[in-house]
């Protein structure tokens, strides 16, 4: 536990796989297909961003980003409805819960004494964290739409007291 800088991408992938197999792909037929080429990841366009902040012995943010079709499919799976019945509020709620679950599991791998905030969901521009940098990222396609999960660490904050 000496290296608290970040999770490994494998850890993030395992968390994401567990979320998918629990709620989004219970039959194991349509998992998230990870993308590792930096070029391909850079080309992904996302405009919905759900995030939680982590404070305490580690400071940073966990962001789940996707586009609207992905959010619709995701909400449809969570809420057991058709994608075209999904409304704005449904997507906000589902993406928020997704960020909460991923962020909570990320927290459990950090040193004890961290807290996870309630989720925030924004559309349009990606949230900008001026004093933080991305330290771990998993990107992938689900039903051909992008999902990008990023862990941001606030600068100089590792090991800082709460």
């Amino acid at each position: 536990m000496s290296d608290v800088a970040a999770l490994r991408v494998e850890d993030l992938h395992e968390i994401v796989e567990q979320v998918w197999s629990s709620y989004l792909d219970p039959d194991g037929i349509e998992p998230l297909l990870p993308i590792f080429s930096e070029e391909d990841v850079a080309a992904l366009k996302t405009d919905m961003h759900a995030s939680v902040s982590i404070t305490g012995t580690w400071h940073g943010h966990v962001v789940v980003a996707c586009n609207e079709p992905a959010a619709k499919n995701c909400s449809a799976a969570f809420l057991a409805m058709e994608a075209d019945e999904v409304g704005e509020e449904d997507m906000m709620d589902v993406l928020g819960e997704l960020a909460n679950i991923v962020g909570g599991n990320v927290k459990s791998m950090l040193p004890p004494g961290c807290f996870v905030s309630l989720p925030t969901v924004v559309t349009g521009e990606a949230p900008h964290y001026p004093s933080a940098e991305p330290v771990c990222q998993l990107a992938g396609l689900w039903k051909e739409d992008p999902f990008v999960i990023t862990m941001w660490q606030s600068s100089g904050a590792a090991g800082e007291a709460a």
Binding site: E10, H13, E17, G28, I29, P31, L32, L33, P34, F36
Partner: peptide, 16 residues
């Protein structure tokens, strides 16, 4: 059969 996507998803990190 039908688990082709699953196999692919699991093997992408291994291939890498």
């Amino acid at each position: 059969p039908g688990k082709e996507y699953l196999v692919e998803a699991r093997l992408i990190p291994v291939a890498r």
